[in-house]
């Protein structure tokens, strides 16, 4: 019971702050709402007993990546909105396309669940207090290739960003 109340409160907050992120006029306010949003997601992880993931969520997303967003926003002058926003018809087309994609995704998830209720889920792991070790084991055994791929991808992105920013290498 208590867990359900906590879950729905947190979920509502996540959604609410998500809406605020995209509706806030001021970019810096928007980023702050994003941070709060991430903190509530971390709360969700705690509720699931995954403290390690919760803390990592805060360290990486709230504490690391979003700070960089803030950095960029503060350095780049955003007083003047980009021209693309002025074109109302283009904006409408984009909006419709995005909503259609999201709708299709939701339908797909619902349909998948209906067809095979438990197929996609991995077997439930015994939730010990020490889920650090569990996460580590999973990452380096079952999910080793995706894990390494992800790190490669990040490395490529990093090198690409440096090449783009500095022509005189």
């Amino acid at each position: 019971m208590g867990q359900a109340i906590a879950f729905y409160t947190i979920a509502a907050c996540i959604l609410g702050f998500g809406v605020l992120v995209i509706t806030a006029k001021n970019t810096v306010h928007s980023i702050m709402f994003l941070v709060v949003n991430f903190l509530f997601v971390a709360g969700l992880y705690v509720l699931l007993g995954a403290q390690f993931l919760a803390v990592i969520q805060v360290v990486v997303y709230a504490g690391g990546i979003v700070v960089l967003y803030l950095f960029v926003v503060m350095l780049v002058n955003l007083k003047r909105p980009p021209e693309a926003h002025q074109d109302r018809r283009r904006r409408g087309r984009l909006g419709v396309t995005c909503s259609l994609v999201v709708l299709a995704e939701l339908v797909a998830i619902a349909a998948y669940k209906y067809v095979s209720p438990a197929a996609g889920l991995p077997p439930a792991l015994p939730m010990g207090p020490d889920n650090v070790a569990q996460v580590g084991m999973l990452l380096y055994t079952d999910y080793l290739i995706p894990f390494e791929l992800a790190s490669m991808l990040l490395l490529v992105a990093m090198v690409g960003a440096i090449v783009l920013a500095r022509r005189d290498l």
Binding site: M32, V55, V59, G63
Partner: peptide, 10 residues
């Protein structure tokens, strides 16, 4: 502690 410290930056 790391997580909490990273929030203080904001």
């Amino acid at each position: 502690i790391v997580a909490v410290a990273s929030i203080g930056v904001y």
